[in-house]
Computed example of a mutant assay.
Amino acid sequence: MTLLLLGLFLFLGTHSVRIFANDWANAQTKKRGPSFWKISYTLVSLIGFFLIIKGYAHAQESRVLVWSPPFWAGHLTGLLTLLSFILLASSKRPKNLIYASLKHPMIIAVKIWALAHLLANGTLAAMVLFGSFLVWAILDFRSSRQRDALQGNEDLDYVTTANWQGTFPAICIGVLTWGFFAFYLHRVLIGVQPFMR
């Protein structure tokens, strides 16, 4: 569990700088340059991500069960993660209605992904991992909306030009990526086959 906690601290810590110390982050970027900041940010995030993977796998070996998810939870998780993948794809596609409506679909995708996995996993390690990401996503979404309000960042041009031509490809990419991950890559990387419990 120590490795998992350390990984979460490093990974979510770097991704929380804009939540708790936005002025400090801006000052560091100006002082050391954007390249140095991005490289440092990426390096610490990668180390944290690696520790999360190793720590979670190690913690799951002991399988401290907190609660037993119902049989349908895995299927609900699969459907919720489908929505999560569509939102994630929408954060990268220009002129789509989903981004124009939600403003921060990537953070919402993390919220749904974390909540979905909490529903299907009852071990202590899973609750620590996915619970941490859920709390982070809630705080980050709130912080992002506050920054939007302060900066007047409503992106009206993006909203007015959003259309279904930009939205449909995002949905297709999300569905296809989800299918590949759910029916193949999840088993290869995580060792669990969704929908097969």
Rank of each mutant, 00 (worst) to 15 (best):
H15V: 03
F11Q: 04
Y41F: 15
L12A: 01
L10C: 09
F20M: 00
I39A: 13
Q28M: 13
I19K: 09
R18N: 11
G7E: 05
G13Y: 06
S16W: 06
S16P: 10
R32Y: 15
G33C: 00
S40H: 11
T14R: 15
K31V: 02
L4I: 01
W24T: 10
Y41C: 09
F11N: 04
L6F: 11
S35I: 08
V17R: 07
G33A: 04
N26W: 05
W37I: 09
S35E: 12
T14K: 13
L4A: 01
L5R: 13
L8M: 00
D23W: 04
F36W: 11
K31N: 00
K31D: 00
V17D: 07
I39Y: 12
A27I: 02
W37T: 10
L12D: 07
H15I: 04
W37R: 14
A21S: 15
D23C: 01
R32C: 07
R18C: 06
A25L: 12
S40T: 14
G33S: 02
F36G: 03
F20R: 04
D23E: 15
I19F: 05
W24H: 05
W37S: 11
L10P: 01
Y41W: 13
L4Q: 04
F9T: 15
R18S: 14
N26E: 14
Q28E: 13
G7I: 08
F20W: 14
L6G: 03
S40L: 15
F11L: 04
K31I: 02
L8T: 03
N22S: 12
L3K: 08
W24I: 06
R18I: 00
I39S: 08
Y41I: 02
L10N: 01
H15T: 00
L4S: 06
T29L: 07
G13S: 06
K30E: 06
F9H: 05
V17C: 07
L10I: 05
K30L: 08
Q28Y: 06
F9Q: 05
A27M: 10
L12E: 11
T29P: 01
T14M: 15
A27R: 15
P34D: 02
Q28L: 11
K30P: 02
F36V: 15
T2I: 14
R18Y: 14
N26L: 12
H15P: 02
G7K: 11
T14Q: 15
G13I: 08
L4Y: 05
L6R: 02
S16Q: 06
W37E: 14
V17Y: 09
V17G: 10
N26M: 12
D23M: 06
A27L: 07
Q28G: 05
D23N: 14
P34Q: 00
L4N: 06
K38Y: 08
L4E: 05
T14P: 08
F11Y: 12
A25N: 04
L6S: 14
G13R: 06
T29S: 12
L6K: 02
L4F: 03
S35D: 13
S35A: 10
L3Y: 14
Q28H: 10
R18G: 10
L4D: 04
K30D: 00
L8I: 02
R32W: 13
Q28D: 04
D23G: 07
D23Y: 04
G33E: 00
Q28T: 00
L8N: 02
L3Q: 11
Q28F: 09
R32T: 12
K30S: 10
F9I: 12
I19A: 06
F9N: 05
L10H: 03
L12N: 09
S40W: 12
L8E: 00
